[in-house]
Computed example of a mutant assay.
Amino acid sequence: MANFTIADIKALREQLGTGMVDTKKALEEADGNVEKAVELLRLKGAKGNAKRADRATSEGLVVARELNGKATLVELACETDFVAKNERFIALADKVADAAAAAGADSVEAALAASAGDQTVDQLISDEAAIIGEKVELRRVRTLDGDAFQIYLHRTSKDLPPQVGVVVAYSGDDAETARSIAQHISFANPSYLSRDEVPAAEVEKEREIVTEISRNEGKPEAALPKIVEGRVNAFFKQVALLDQDYAKDNKLSVAKVAQDAGITVTGFARFKVGA
């Protein structure tokens, strides 16, 4: 009879995020030896990593670090919410974020190549995925330079780790307003800092679309330029942070809020798990 209990299975499963059946089999094969069972699960998982390559990773978490005058935002993805809230997966995300921040990585490729102890981040993720038994993927990494930073991590569910993360780079002394703008970004999801950053081709495409819509609505030809300009400005308010109506007071733009607080937003990054 194997030398372990149901409580042992539960404890190991919660530690590793592995399936009930696989955990039980590993403990049986290891005769209750937890360290040996972990190694068996790792070996079994390593063989399964390739099989899991095409699986979807729609769950996970975001984590951020501020280091050496930079701030790094990381999204680490997995297959299920069970793994996303597992302590081992959360610890892995922390190690990945530490390594990416230390390397100043601004891309997935750079982060995967970064050193994490005596191995690369890529190797670390592969090893941990083998133990966890799910596909684990470093989906996005962004590093910002700036005078100061505010980091906002939002939980979409109290049972899960943060799934929306925002980093704001700014200059000035009003940290409270900078954090409020980070919260605004988490909600409003702008694509660009200012309208000047929106690619000209994207603006022109929007202009063509709203022109066609306006004509189809029967708007007078003479009035089209003004109508189209108004709709293009509405487009900028959707995609450009500084043009957006401030979430806490829609009578003010984000640009006005920042100006009144004496701060200048110089950059931002926003990740939402699976989006």
Rank of each mutant, 00 (worst) to 15 (best):
F149E: 09
Q150M: 15
Q150R: 12
Q150L: 13
Y152L: 14
Y152K: 09
H154F: 00
H154Q: 06
R155Y: 10
R155M: 15
R155S: 09
R155A: 15
R155Q: 15
T156S: 13
T156A: 08
S157E: 11
S157N: 04
S157Y: 11
S157K: 01
K158P: 10
D159G: 07
L160F: 02
P161R: 00
P162Q: 06
P162I: 06
Q163S: 08
V164E: 03
V164L: 13
G165H: 03
V166T: 05
V166D: 02
V166W: 13
V167M: 08
V168F: 02
V168R: 00
Y170V: 00
G172L: 04
G172Q: 06
D173K: 05
D174P: 11
A175M: 01
A175V: 04
E176V: 08
T177D: 07
T177V: 15
R179A: 14
R179C: 15
S180F: 12
S180R: 08
I181T: 00
I181C: 12
A182S: 04
A182W: 06
A182Y: 06
H184S: 02
H184E: 01
I185Y: 09
S186G: 14
S186Q: 03
S186L: 11
F187I: 15
A188R: 04
A188N: 04
A188H: 04
A188K: 08
A188M: 15
P190A: 03
P190M: 02
S191I: 05
S191A: 07
S191R: 12
S191Q: 14
S191D: 14
Y192N: 07
Y192A: 01
Y192Q: 01
L193P: 10
L193D: 10
L193M: 09
S194G: 09
R195L: 14
D196Q: 10
D196C: 11
D196I: 01
E197F: 00
E197T: 00
V198T: 01
V198P: 11
V198N: 02
A200Y: 08
A200K: 12
A200E: 09
A200M: 09
A201I: 10
E202H: 03
E204I: 06
K205S: 10
E206V: 06
R207C: 05
R207M: 02
R207K: 05
E208N: 05
E208V: 06
E208T: 02
I209E: 12
T211P: 11
E212R: 08
S214C: 08
R215F: 11
R215V: 01
R215H: 00
N216K: 15
E217Y: 13
G218M: 01
G218V: 02
G218C: 01
P220C: 10
P220H: 07
E221H: 11
A222R: 14
A223M: 14
A223R: 12
L224C: 03
L224A: 05
P225H: 08
K226V: 15
K226M: 13
I227D: 05
I227P: 00
V228H: 11
E229H: 03
E229P: 07
E229M: 08
